[in-house]
Design a protein around this nucleic acid. Structure first.
Lengths: 224, 224
DNA sequence: GGAGGGCGTCAAGGTTTCGTCAAGACGCGC
DNA sequence: GCGCGTCTTGACGAAACCTTGACGCCCTCC
């Protein structure tokens, strides 16, 4: 049973959600204020948190930030505000997802499942390797012919996304969204630059890559 | 010296691996059949096992399962088959990693290290030594070229966290949380100051560190 | 054959982050 | 109250990184 911390000052909405989420297998704890939420989270770390941004005492975004600073708990934000800026603020503070009111319970449940799925160590294999190339995700280390190669954060992120499903195609759009965020979904420039850098660091012959392959017009794939 | 049980029926490959792995500090015992492997493992539990799935007498997956049922030994599987199903079967049986042939010795060594590291996360090494540096965690003592080095409490705490998983990257956030507490998760200043002090005390040349390495934008790692 | 789009490469510029230093604050023992 | 070691804080140049645009190549379609 997953414990869920619901930070919600509207008692009526809180009750509704407690019942609905409880019926779907979550153990729901309600905190009506930001202060209470942080105290609860510290005492009994939840598996996932839902934060309503319209709190009375403090800015909800600060609650999100504090929650994420203190732990790895996935956070879903509820808000009546729909502007891009609000979303960016919340997501930058560490929120995993952003749900605008009004919303359906099914939507919330789906996002909860997605957030929990992402929070889990995605792959069972900590190490992916193929002829001379070793990628140790736990250690965040890459070796090529026995020597460690240094990757920048963005390079690593790109590689990490590709490695989540070795052999499968990852669309440009997905890659950009995962690494740079949703608003960069059409900046394919970035991919050209970073895929090129990865190839130069990982492939024996970057001009005829054997691992990071291009699917023109669609995306890239990492083949083992 | 780690004892390694190699379950391999191909005599030529077994010989090659025995030499290579032996040269890298493993005491290799070869078992050409599944039955022999289990008998050997029962008599003298190995630190890690490598199982080739192409065995003559029984299904290699069953050997993996039996090994894991009997002990906590980490198991790495060798196989010529690369399909997703094969991997899932082996991993479900309890294998820790899956290496497809052909593979390089460096790759296998990297996976062995990773498997061993994962297998004993809690059983921390009491003493870590490298070059002229000796760190005794139990005694809270650090020696460099034979002379004790005095560390302040905070310096020690930082070093201690880094040493929990030598070679692994520790994110800035994790370090700050472990040493200063959750509410300091973004005070990266502290890390810059204390990592610098540690380098001055522990490294031969603090301006080009060989042990405490920076991963810009991400964190630090202690390499042995 | 030409035009256009997608890709790979490169390097300059701007931005972020790092390492270092030192001054001040703090706590502790005397 | 005083001295000592330690921790915190802010500032600065240096290094690493990211972004951006330009260019040439290949392929496809006209």
């Amino acid at each position: 049973m997953t414990t869920l911390l619901l930070v919600e000052d509207d008692a009526s909405l809180a009750r509704t959600l407690r019942v609905s989420l409880g019926a779907h297998g979550y153990e729901v704890h309600v905190a009506p204020t930001g202060a209470e939420a942080l105290a609860r989270a510290a005492a009994d770390p939840p598996g996932v948190a839902i934060v309503d941004l319209g709190l009375p005492d403090v800015d909800g975004v600060e609650v999100v930030r504090a929650l994420r600073d203190a732990s790895e708990v996935p956070v879903i934000v509820l808000s009546a505000r729909t502007t891009q800026d609000d979303k960016v603020l919340a997501l930058d503070a560490g929120a995993d997802d952003y749900v605008t009111k009004p919303f359906g319970i099914e939507e919330l449940l789906a996002r909860l499942r997605a957030a929990l799925r992402r929070a889990q160590p995605s792959e069972r294999l900590a190490v992916v390797s193929t002829g001379g190339l070793v990628v140790d995700r736990q250690a965040r280390r890459v070796e090529r012919h026995g020597q460690t190669v240094h990757l920048t954060p963005t390079e690593w992120n790109v590689l990490e996304v590709l490695l989540r499903s070795p052999g499968d195609l990852v669309t440009q759009r997905d890659l950009l969204r995962e690494v740079w965020g949703p608003q960069y979904a059409r900046e394919t420039n970035y991919l050209r630059v970073y895929v090129g850098q990865l190839r130069r660091k990982l492939e024996d012959d970057a001009s005829s890559p054997r691992h990071i392959l291009t699917e023109p017009g669609v995306g890239y794939r990492f083949v083992v």
